[in-house]
Design a protein around this nucleic acid. Sequence first.
RNA 1: GGCGCUAUGGUGCAACGGUUAGCACGCGGCCCUUUCAAGGCCGAAAUACGGGUUCGAUUCCCGUUAGCGCUACCA
Length: 505
Amino acid sequence: MVSIPKNNTLMAPPEKPRVRFAPSPTGYLHVGGARTALFNWLFARREGGTLLLRIEDTDVERNRPELVEGILEGLKWLGIDWDEGPLFQSQRLEMYRAAAERLLASGAGFACYCKPAAYAGGDAAPGGAADYEGEGDDEGAKVKKNIACPCRDLTEPERAAKQREGIPRAIRFRAPRTGATTFEDAVFGPREVQNVEIEDFVLLRSNGLPTYQLSVVVDDIDMRITHVIRGADHLSNTPKQVLLYQALGAATPVFAHVPLILGPDRTRLSKRHGATSVGSYAEEGFLPEAFRNFLALLGWSPGGDSEFLRTSELVARFSLAGVSRTNAVFDRAKLEWFNTQYLQKPPVEELLPYVEAELRRAGLWEGSQASREGAWFARAVDLIRPRTRLLTDFTGWARAFFTEDFDFEAEARAKFWKDERLPAMLEKLAVALDALPDWNHDSCDATLRGLAAAEGVKAGLLINATRVAIVGRAVAPPLFETMVVLGKDRVVSRLRRALPVLSSR
RNA sequence: GGCGCUAUGGUGCAACGGUUAGCACGCGGCCCUUUCAAGGCCGAAAUACGGGUUCGAUUCCCGUUAGCGCUACCA
């Protein structure tokens, strides 16, 4: 028999949800952050709500202001647009201080004069166990960690004395020592934690700067955030924040904690695992929509078996109810598969701008035939794209397809230009093709096969040799389709240009 | 250590008491193709373990194990 939590999380949410993505500029936009941003964005767009961008830069030590631009760029590349912000916490410090003072005045908070990490078991090194075992009598008896700060019971004279000594003061939250704190999580369900497990956490540091716990709650209240969608690493700290909402007299939002993204070794994804910044995926030649599709399915599912979901479908089908509770391993191979799908399935016109940008980046665009003949560029891209996995793969085809400046690859020559009868036959082929009144797949096909028959050789010999002659490579799209796309003039001239090279072997 | 979360093939998901446990990636094979891809077909591959509850558990409960998270005057 579970009692129904009596807090305000069960109130009907306002018409239009307001969500936020709140990265801290201590690094680039990484895959995990991008996925959180994406979920917030999908939710906002699905619900017709508002997405706000907030930069959590209250940690002066680690904060790198110059990284903010990169984060914004990463979001833009991903196609995630926000409606408000970016707002910087570093510009809202007065608000947090005021809130901390209010909490202090109301008794919900108290002044703390401890040295940082002084009381929590004596040794609160980052990441280290901060408790201790009872010595003596009962072997193995554990002494419960003292999570209440001694300063919480300071009398006013004692406090004033510390103050006079000039000891730096922090403000801590006076965590309740009885009862439990409950809240509703849209992903993990109803949560309840015993208040004795909650320590007297710091609200305002002795340097006057707020901690995350304080600033996040003050901001989410001030910005009227209705749904807090963030990584599951924040799940354990949520009760503290719920306590703060209550102490501040505000309604709690709906929380939705999304599972973490792991590396192949099942530890939290980090630089050790290679590329983790979205920027690196952009540079590698992934399409933003493919990346979105892949990311959306990491910890979320629409419920059925469909996987190739264009962004509009993602938006239409997104729901917090579909978010999983299990951490997911980032699988690069699957990402690449998604990319091939997005390279192939959408109308070719959608792809053109990306290919053009890629060619420009490689310096292969200016002055190329592709830049001059748009329709032809489209047909060529359409022919090549089934053979690409990344956008950058197009540069490998670019010279042969979009310019007249290409080489005959050595391996291709070695493999398909061995036969000594080839020069004579290709010369005849050039003449025959040149005389063709209609230039299309079938006429090219018939001409080549006819010649092969007349010469008494297999068509394959000519097909492979001709392919090398007109695009310089052994691995290429089907010959006759390539010939149609290149056009008669290019094919014939390329064939003739190949002849001397061919004979010289 | 404490507290919490999680647990379906190698990976991502589906099945939300009744299915021969489904799909996709990856892997292997075949077809198509005188190149290479793409595509099609086939195959190997999973309910962590142990107890319950139930006519019936992948599904609900408990325990074990494992992984992860939190336990900072980081966010």
